[in-house]
Protein backbone atom coordinates (compact mmCIF):
# COMPACT_ATOMS: atom_id res chain seq x y z
CA UNK A 1 0.00 0.00 0.00
CA UNK A 2 1.15 3.48 -0.74
CA UNK A 3 1.07 5.99 2.06
CA UNK A 4 0.65 9.67 1.89
CA UNK A 5 3.27 11.84 3.61
CA UNK A 6 2.63 15.40 2.46
CA UNK A 7 4.91 18.22 3.49
CA UNK A 8 3.52 21.50 4.70
CA UNK A 9 5.21 23.19 1.73
CA UNK A 10 3.48 20.88 -0.77
CA UNK A 11 0.10 21.54 0.80
CA UNK A 12 0.76 25.25 0.75
CA UNK A 13 1.54 25.09 -2.96
CA UNK A 14 -1.92 23.58 -3.39
CA UNK A 15 -3.41 26.36 -1.32
CA UNK A 16 -4.08 23.96 1.56
CA UNK A 17 -2.87 23.69 5.10
CA UNK A 18 -2.79 20.71 7.45
CA UNK A 19 -4.94 20.42 10.52
CA UNK A 20 -1.99 19.09 12.42
CA UNK A 21 1.74 18.97 11.83
CA UNK A 22 3.56 15.75 12.70
CA UNK A 23 6.86 16.86 14.21
CA UNK A 24 9.15 13.92 13.45
CA UNK A 25 12.20 14.94 15.47
CA UNK A 26 15.85 14.12 14.82
CA UNK A 27 15.74 10.58 16.20
CA UNK A 28 12.56 9.87 14.26
CA UNK A 29 14.22 11.15 11.09
CA UNK A 30 17.68 9.63 11.32
CA UNK A 31 17.88 6.78 13.83
CA UNK A 32 17.37 3.46 12.04
CA UNK A 33 15.31 1.92 14.82
CA UNK A 34 13.25 5.00 15.57
CA UNK A 35 12.43 5.55 11.90
CA UNK A 36 10.12 2.53 12.14
CA UNK A 37 8.20 4.35 14.85
CA UNK A 38 7.82 7.33 12.54
CA UNK A 39 6.60 5.08 9.78
CA UNK A 40 4.19 3.30 12.11
CA UNK A 41 2.70 6.56 13.25
CA UNK A 42 2.31 7.78 9.67
CA UNK A 43 0.49 4.55 8.85
CA UNK A 44 -1.98 5.22 11.63
CA UNK A 45 -2.50 8.79 10.50
CA UNK A 46 -3.10 7.57 6.95
CA UNK A 47 -5.43 4.83 8.08
CA UNK A 48 -7.58 7.30 9.96
CA UNK A 49 -7.47 9.88 7.17
CA UNK A 50 -5.98 12.55 9.38
CA UNK A 51 -5.28 15.82 7.61
CA UNK A 52 -1.62 16.02 8.59
CA UNK A 53 1.68 17.07 7.09
CA UNK A 54 5.34 17.01 8.02
CA UNK A 55 7.93 19.74 7.62
CA UNK A 56 10.34 17.39 5.85
CA UNK A 57 13.72 19.00 5.36
CA UNK A 58 12.41 22.25 6.83
CA UNK A 59 12.34 20.71 10.29
CA UNK A 60 15.37 21.21 12.54
CA UNK A 61 16.41 20.06 16.00
CA UNK A 62 14.23 21.75 18.64
CA UNK A 63 17.40 22.55 20.59
CA UNK A 64 16.45 20.43 23.60
CA UNK A 65 19.82 18.67 24.02
CA UNK A 66 21.66 21.98 23.64
CA UNK A 67 19.48 23.61 26.29
CA UNK A 68 19.81 20.77 28.76
CA UNK A 69 23.56 20.57 28.25
CA UNK A 70 23.66 24.26 29.14
CA UNK A 71 24.07 25.99 25.78
CA UNK A 72 21.14 28.36 25.87
CA UNK A 73 22.40 30.29 22.84
CA UNK A 74 22.23 27.31 20.59
CA UNK A 75 18.84 26.34 21.96
CA UNK A 76 17.35 29.73 21.27
CA UNK A 77 18.91 29.89 17.81
CA UNK A 78 17.22 26.59 16.96
CA UNK A 79 13.98 27.65 18.59
CA UNK A 80 13.78 30.97 16.75
CA UNK A 81 14.56 29.32 13.42
CA UNK A 82 11.89 26.69 13.91
CA UNK A 83 9.38 29.26 15.11
CA UNK A 84 10.00 31.34 11.97
CA UNK A 85 9.15 28.32 9.84
CA UNK A 86 6.11 27.24 11.85
CA UNK A 87 4.69 30.75 12.15
CA UNK A 88 5.41 31.35 8.47
CA UNK A 89 3.01 28.52 7.66
CA UNK A 90 0.52 29.61 10.30
CA UNK A 91 0.72 26.26 12.09
CA UNK A 92 -1.77 25.83 14.94
CA UNK A 93 -1.38 22.28 16.13
CA UNK A 94 1.57 19.90 16.43
CA UNK A 95 1.83 16.23 17.34
CA UNK A 96 5.13 14.52 18.01
CA UNK A 97 6.27 11.07 19.08
CA UNK A 98 9.24 12.50 20.98
CA UNK A 99 8.62 13.64 24.57
CA UNK A 100 11.68 15.88 24.44
CA UNK A 101 10.45 17.71 21.35
CA UNK A 102 7.00 17.73 22.94
CA UNK A 103 8.20 19.33 26.16
CA UNK A 104 10.31 21.92 24.40
CA UNK A 105 7.69 22.87 21.82
CA UNK A 106 4.90 22.97 24.37
CA UNK A 107 6.60 24.63 27.31
CA UNK A 108 9.63 26.52 26.09
CA UNK A 109 8.66 27.83 22.64
CA UNK A 110 5.64 29.98 23.63
CA UNK A 111 7.73 32.66 25.39
CA UNK A 112 9.91 32.89 22.29
CA UNK A 113 6.91 33.52 20.06
CA UNK A 114 5.95 29.95 19.13
CA UNK A 115 2.45 29.39 20.45
CA UNK A 116 0.88 26.13 19.27
CA UNK A 117 -1.32 23.43 20.62
CA UNK A 118 1.22 20.66 21.15
CA UNK A 119 0.31 17.05 21.93
CA UNK A 120 2.25 13.86 22.26
CA UNK A 121 1.34 10.97 19.98
CA UNK A 122 0.16 8.96 22.98
CA UNK A 123 -2.45 11.64 23.58
CA UNK A 124 -3.57 11.62 19.95
CA UNK A 125 -3.77 7.83 20.00
CA UNK A 126 -5.82 7.98 23.16
CA UNK A 127 -8.13 10.46 21.48
CA UNK A 128 -8.60 8.06 18.54
CA UNK A 129 -9.43 5.31 20.99
CA UNK A 130 -11.89 7.49 22.90
CA UNK A 131 -13.55 8.40 19.61
CA UNK A 132 -13.83 4.73 18.72
CA UNK A 133 -11.58 5.08 15.68
CA UNK A 134 -9.13 2.58 17.10
CA UNK A 135 -10.82 -0.37 18.73
CA UNK A 136 -9.73 -3.08 21.07
CA UNK A 137 -8.54 -6.14 19.18
CA UNK A 138 -9.87 -8.93 21.30
CA UNK A 139 -8.05 -12.19 20.99
CA UNK A 140 -5.42 -10.45 18.87
CA UNK A 141 -1.76 -11.34 18.85
CA UNK A 142 -1.14 -9.56 22.15
CA UNK A 143 -3.91 -11.27 24.05
CA UNK A 144 -2.68 -12.26 27.48
CA UNK A 145 0.91 -11.29 26.66
CA UNK A 146 2.74 -9.47 29.40
CA UNK A 147 3.62 -5.91 28.48
CA UNK A 148 5.27 -3.40 30.75
CA UNK A 149 5.25 0.32 30.08
CA UNK A 150 8.31 2.44 30.79
CA UNK A 151 7.39 6.03 31.74
CA UNK A 152 9.38 8.65 29.90
CA UNK A 153 10.49 11.38 32.33
CA UNK A 154 9.58 14.09 29.87
CA UNK A 155 6.04 12.80 29.51
CA UNK A 156 5.46 11.73 33.08
CA UNK A 157 7.06 13.88 35.73
CA UNK A 158 7.83 16.71 33.33
CA UNK A 159 4.30 17.00 31.94
CA UNK A 160 2.07 14.78 34.04
CA UNK A 161 1.12 12.39 31.26
CA UNK A 162 0.81 8.97 32.85
CA UNK A 163 -2.58 7.73 31.72
CA UNK A 164 -2.64 8.29 27.95
CA UNK A 165 0.09 5.75 27.13
CA UNK A 166 -1.51 3.17 29.40
CA UNK A 167 -4.92 3.75 27.81
CA UNK A 168 -3.31 3.11 24.43
CA UNK A 169 -1.87 -0.16 25.64
CA UNK A 170 -5.24 -1.27 26.97
CA UNK A 171 -6.62 -1.71 23.46
CA UNK A 172 -4.07 -4.44 22.84
CA UNK A 173 -6.02 -6.67 25.20
CA UNK A 174 -2.69 -7.60 26.73
CA UNK A 175 -1.66 -8.22 30.32
CA UNK A 176 -0.25 -4.90 31.49
CA UNK A 177 2.27 -5.26 34.31
CA UNK A 178 3.86 -2.35 36.12
CA UNK A 179 7.46 -2.13 37.16
CA UNK A 180 8.14 -1.43 40.82
CA UNK A 181 9.19 2.11 40.02
CA UNK A 182 6.48 3.51 37.77
CA UNK A 183 4.49 6.67 37.11
CA UNK A 184 5.69 9.46 39.40
CA UNK A 185 8.52 7.32 40.72
CA UNK A 186 9.45 5.82 37.35
CA UNK A 187 13.18 5.44 36.88
CA UNK A 188 14.80 7.41 34.08
CA UNK A 189 16.28 5.40 31.17
CA UNK A 190 19.45 7.47 31.52
CA UNK A 191 19.24 9.47 28.28
CA UNK A 192 17.63 12.75 29.35
CA UNK A 193 19.41 16.01 29.96
CA UNK A 194 21.63 15.40 26.90
CA UNK A 195 23.07 12.24 28.49
CA UNK A 196 22.09 10.54 25.23
CA UNK A 197 25.02 12.32 23.62
CA UNK A 198 27.79 11.52 26.05
CA UNK A 199 29.28 8.66 28.00
CA UNK A 200 27.85 8.28 31.51
CA UNK A 201 29.86 9.68 34.40
CA UNK A 202 31.81 7.25 36.56
CA UNK A 203 29.59 4.99 38.64
CA UNK A 204 28.97 1.36 39.40
CA UNK A 205 26.28 0.72 36.81
CA UNK A 206 24.67 2.30 33.78
CA UNK A 207 21.23 3.70 34.37
CA UNK A 208 19.72 1.89 31.38
CA UNK A 209 20.94 -1.44 32.75
CA UNK A 210 19.36 -0.73 36.13
CA UNK A 211 16.10 0.10 34.40
CA UNK A 212 16.21 -2.81 31.98
CA UNK A 213 16.77 -5.25 34.84
CA UNK A 214 13.68 -3.89 36.49
CA UNK A 215 11.68 -4.27 33.29
CA UNK A 216 12.91 -7.83 32.81
CA UNK A 217 11.95 -8.70 36.38
CA UNK A 218 8.30 -8.16 35.50
CA UNK A 219 8.51 -11.12 33.16
CA UNK A 220 7.12 -9.01 30.33
CA UNK A 221 8.04 -10.04 26.80
CA UNK A 222 7.39 -6.56 25.48
CA UNK A 223 8.67 -3.32 26.92
CA UNK A 224 6.53 -0.47 25.66
CA UNK A 225 8.19 2.91 25.25
CA UNK A 226 6.84 6.27 24.19
CA UNK A 227 10.13 8.05 23.59
CA UNK A 228 12.88 7.49 21.02
CA UNK A 229 15.64 7.91 23.59
CA UNK A 230 14.05 5.51 26.06
CA UNK A 231 13.68 3.09 23.16
CA UNK A 232 17.39 3.27 22.34
CA UNK A 233 18.49 2.99 25.96
CA UNK A 234 16.21 0.07 26.77
CA UNK A 235 17.02 -1.78 23.54
CA UNK A 236 20.70 -1.46 24.41
CA UNK A 237 19.92 -2.68 27.91
CA UNK A 238 18.05 -5.72 26.62
CA UNK A 239 20.98 -6.53 24.31
CA UNK A 240 23.41 -6.12 27.17
CA UNK A 241 21.38 -8.66 29.14
CA UNK A 242 21.34 -10.92 26.05
CA UNK A 243 17.58 -11.01 26.04
CA UNK A 244 16.99 -9.51 22.61
CA UNK A 245 15.49 -12.74 21.28
CA UNK A 246 12.97 -13.01 24.09
CA UNK A 247 12.13 -9.44 24.90
CA UNK A 248 11.31 -6.66 22.45
CA UNK A 249 11.11 -2.94 22.94
CA UNK A 250 8.35 -1.30 20.93
CA UNK A 251 6.86 2.15 20.70
CA UNK A 252 3.12 2.58 21.31
CA UNK A 253 2.54 3.41 17.65
CA UNK A 254 4.25 0.22 16.51
CA UNK A 255 2.14 -1.85 18.87
CA UNK A 256 -1.04 -0.25 17.55
CA UNK A 257 0.02 -0.91 13.97
CA UNK A 258 0.74 -4.56 14.79
CA UNK A 259 -2.49 -5.11 16.66
CA UNK A 260 -4.63 -3.35 14.05
CA UNK A 261 -2.69 -5.08 11.25
CA UNK A 262 -2.14 -1.82 9.38
Amino acid sequence: MEYNVPTVAELKAQGKSPEIVFWVGCAGSFDERVKSVTVAFVKILNHLNVNFAVLGTEEACTGDPAKRAGNEFMFQMQAMTNIEVLNGYGIQKIVTACPHCFNTLKNEYPELGGKYEVIHHSQLLQQFIDEGKIKMTEGGEFKGKKITYHDSCYLGRANNIYEAPRKVLEVLDADLVEMKRCKTTGLCCGAGGAQMFKEPEKGNKDINIERTEEALQTGAKIIAAACPFCMTMLSDGVKNKEQEHNVKVYDLAELIVQSQRL
Binding site: A79, K106, N107, E108, R157, N159
Partner: peptide, 8 residues
Protein backbone atom coordinates in the same frame (compact mmCIF):
# COMPACT_ATOMS: atom_id res chain seq x y z
CA UNK B 1 5.26 22.00 34.28
CA UNK B 2 8.37 20.49 35.85
CA UNK B 3 9.87 19.94 32.40
CA UNK B 4 9.92 23.62 31.53
CA UNK B 5 13.28 25.31 31.92
CA UNK B 6 13.35 29.07 31.82
CA UNK B 7 14.49 30.79 28.62
CA UNK B 8 17.26 33.20 29.52
Amino acid sequence: PAGKLNNM
